[in-house]
Simulated assay, not measured.
Amino acid sequence: MIKIHLVAPDGAETALEVKPAGSLMEAAVKHNVDGIAADCGGLLTCATCHVYVREPFAAQLPPPGPDELGMLEFAAAERRPNSRLSCQVELTAALDGLTVDLPPTQY
């Protein structure tokens, strides 16, 4: 199991212990985390699972592919250098302690 932390815009934190498998979006949806809408269910056809990945984890992730970069252009909240779609963040043992900030809106 690994621990991941999702921080809401108001500073409230949700900590999850999950298996290192699947995506961050899948884990958030499974645990009903507010702030991850995931309208397309991880098909990379929306940007409603946008998150800001904190260091040191942002630097550890593979760079976003062209499809993810394209969808991030449609994110409702400000796009930042550490913006990622949580459906593209594959949970591995190396991401134990991962912390992401949720944007103020997904729409």
Rank of each mutant, 00 (worst) to 15 (best):
P81L: 13
D39N: 01
D39F: 08
P66G: 07
A76M: 08
F74M: 03
I36K: 10
P66E: 14
V33E: 12
H31K: 12
L72S: 07
A38L: 00
P62Y: 04
Q60K: 11
I36H: 00
H31N: 15
P62L: 03
E68Y: 02
G35W: 10
L43M: 15
D34H: 04
Q60S: 12
L43R: 06
H31T: 00
E73Y: 03
H31R: 07
R79S: 05
A59F: 09
M71C: 07
P64I: 14
G35R: 08
V29H: 03
C46L: 03
E55S: 11
L61Y: 03
C49Q: 04
E68I: 09
P66Y: 08
C40G: 02
F57P: 01
A58S: 05
A75N: 07
R80L: 15
A37H: 01
N32G: 08
P62I: 06
A58R: 01
G42M: 08
S83K: 14
C40I: 05
Y52V: 01
S83T: 15
A75E: 04
H31E: 13
C40Q: 05
E78K: 00
E68S: 05
H31A: 11
R79H: 10
F74D: 07
C49T: 04
E78M: 06
C40A: 12
K30R: 11
F74G: 00
M71N: 04
A28K: 01
P63I: 00
R54A: 14
A28D: 06
L85T: 02
E68F: 09
A77S: 14
D67L: 13
D34Y: 11
Y52K: 07
D34M: 13
M71L: 15
V33M: 06
A77V: 05
M71Q: 10
A37S: 00
R54D: 15
A47S: 02
F57L: 09
G42A: 08
R79Y: 05
P56W: 14
H31L: 11
D67G: 09
S83Q: 13
L61E: 02
G42I: 09
P63T: 01
D67Y: 11
Q60W: 07
L43T: 06
K30P: 05
L85K: 07
Y52D: 04
E55L: 10
T45S: 04
F74Y: 10
N32Q: 05
T45K: 06
D39P: 02
K30W: 04
R54K: 08
